[in-house]
């Protein structure tokens, strides 16, 4: 059923060598991309959220051009799809899904949680978002509209969640420590 590690390694070496010989990518470029992918984590997105909460000019930039906002904080975005940021408000809650596959803003959130790619999440997020949110412990009042954002094409989307009112006066690093990946997908809300 599964290939042994040796067979995997042979295949990987052969593929890498061919890509190099054909001038498609060099081994160094592959190593750089692997390092960038491994370094990406929800902590990057959390830094952006915390900055947006304390700096209105950064918040405006983030909503207008997520890619540039990420780069401003030193997050490498070269080669990444354009990043869009969706702002939650008192009356509007965003929930991100990719119903067609598993598009995810990896540059700023890292690898997706396992359930993000599941058929159940992908189907239910569009069909029964409030039921799905409730299972994540997120129960929204009736006056809050739920806007499900289906990542169907070239953009990648992250949510700028609401700042908890109890955090007045907190500094940026402490704020960033509160923000979890689910808050930036929209399955949860930031809690203190």
């Amino acid at each position: 059923m599964t290939m042994s590690a040796t067979a995997d390694e042979k295949l990987l070496r052969a593929l890498t060598a061919l890509l190099g010989q054909k001038g498609i990518v060099t081994p160094d470029e592959i190593a750089e991309r692997v390092a960038l992918t491994d370094a990406a984590s929800p902590g990057q997105g959390a830094r952006m959220v915390a900055r947006a909460w304390v700096d209105p000019a950064y918040r405006a930039l983030m909503l207008a051009d997520g890619t540039r906002a990420a780069e401003t904080l030193g997050i490498p975005m070269r080669g990444a799809p354009p990043l869009g940021v969706l702002e939650n408000t008192a009356g509007l809650h965003h929930l991100v899904v990719c119903t067609l596959c598993s598009c995810y803003p990896r540059a700023v959130l890292g690898y997706p949680p396992f359930w993000f790619k599941s058929a159940a999440y992908r189907a239910r997020a569009v069909r029964d978002p409030r039921g799905l949110l409730a299972e994540f412990g997120t129960v929204l009042p009736d006056h809050v509209r739920v806007r499900v954002v289906d990542s169907t094409a070239d953009y990648r989307w992250m949510v700028l969640p609401l700042r908890p009112p109890e955090t007045a006066g907190w500094d940026e690093a402490r704020l960033a420590g509160l923000v979890r990946e689910g808050d930036m997908i929209g399955v949860t809300q930031v809690a203190c």
């Binding site: 569009v126 509209r145 739920v146």
Partner: peptide, 11 residues
């Protein structure tokens, strides 16, 4: 589903 809720997609 709840009237007023929305789906936003790239087309």
């Amino acid at each position: 589903g709840r009237a007023g809720d929305e789906v936003l997609a790239e087309v």
